[in-house]
Each structure stands twice: as C-alpha cells, then as structure tokens.
Amino acid sequence: MDGWTGRVLLDGATNPQGVETVAPQILLHARGSERSGPPVLLFASMEDKDVRGMLAPLPSHWPLVLTQTGAPRAASPTSLHTQLASSRRGPCLIAEDTPSALRRAAGLAAAGGLIVVFGSLRLVGESRAALGLQPA
C-alpha cells in the first residue's frame, strides 16, 4: 500500500444481522479517524447475499470499494456496483481483486485513516495475506 499510514479493521460480518451487530464498534473506531477523513469501506460478498442490507447500518457517505474474492460463488464487483451505487452518497469504486482493492482504498483514505474490510470471510483472509499478516 506504498507508504500509506493508517489502520485496517478486519471484520467477519457476512450478513445484515452481523453488520448490524458490529456497526457500533465500527462507528467507534471511525470516530478516532474522522479528523483524517471518513473511513473507507472495502466490501465483497457471495452472489446470494443481501448486500444492500449489509451496508445499511453504515454511513452512505463513506467511500466504498467493491471487489471480488477467489471464492467460487463470489459476486462480481460490477454486479455489486449495479446493486449498490444508487444508494451511496460517497464514491463507489470497483477493484478486480483484494490487493488492488486495498491499494485503491488506501488511496481514498487519508494518512492515518481507517479502512474497514467486511462482507466476506474470504475477503478478510485475502486481506490478511495481502497485508502480510500472520494467520490468526
């Protein structure tokens, strides 16, 4: 992520109920980074998920980067964009894979900002690998 200095929050929420449950903690972490701009959401999901419902608990003005994991039933970023772009007030961008999505998110996040990775456990795992983090 080429010198970007910020924080990445990896979350395993994979359905609307999960995101609703963790949203207060995400918002709490976001408060610490608001001075450096809004957090950037990095999102991927499976084809059969309620993606609008998953994003509903989080502010629509936060930038959103959509990507696709290597999972067999992963939704394409183009399909996600078609479903979500009209409900977003902030930028809604596409990246072809997890490493490029992380780079794109870092480009949107200010220095010291926050990237929130969620929607797919596979995305969390791919992000950990791309960031060089050890398995949890």
Rank of each mutant, 00 (worst) to 15 (best):
L102H: 00
R122K: 12
P59S: 07
H29T: 02
L28R: 12
A109C: 10
L27H: 10
E20Q: 15
A101C: 08
S36G: 04
L41R: 14
Q134F: 03
N15P: 00
A44C: 07
L64A: 06
A44D: 01
S33C: 11
Q134R: 13
R89Q: 15
G125A: 14
V65M: 07
D50E: 11
M54W: 06
I94R: 14
G113P: 06
V116D: 03
L42W: 04
H61W: 12
L10I: 10
S79M: 15
G18H: 07
F118N: 01
G32H: 11
S36N: 11
L10K: 00
I26H: 01
A13I: 10
W4N: 08
S127N: 05
I115Q: 01
M54G: 08
D11P: 02
T69M: 11
S87W: 05
G107C: 05
A109E: 02
D11I: 02
A109W: 05
S76L: 10
P39G: 00
L64E: 08
A75F: 01
A56R: 15
T78K: 14
A136Q: 13
L55W: 07
V124S: 06
L27T: 00
T69D: 06
P16R: 10
P91I: 05
A136F: 05
L80T: 08
A136Y: 11
L66I: 10
A13E: 01
L41G: 03
E47I: 13
P24M: 02
G132T: 02
L42H: 04
G119K: 02
R88M: 15
S45C: 15
S100N: 04
P135W: 05
R122I: 09
P63T: 10
S60T: 14
Q17N: 12
L121Y: 03
I115K: 10
S76A: 14
S87A: 14
P99F: 00
A136G: 13
A56N: 10
R103A: 14
Q17K: 14
P72S: 06
T21C: 02
R88C: 12
P99S: 06
P99G: 03
A56H: 13
G119S: 07
A23N: 04
G12Q: 10
D50F: 05
M54I: 10
E126P: 11
S36T: 12
R35A: 15
K49D: 07
G125E: 15
L42R: 06
W62D: 01
M46F: 12
P57F: 09
S33E: 00
P57L: 09
S33M: 03
L58K: 07
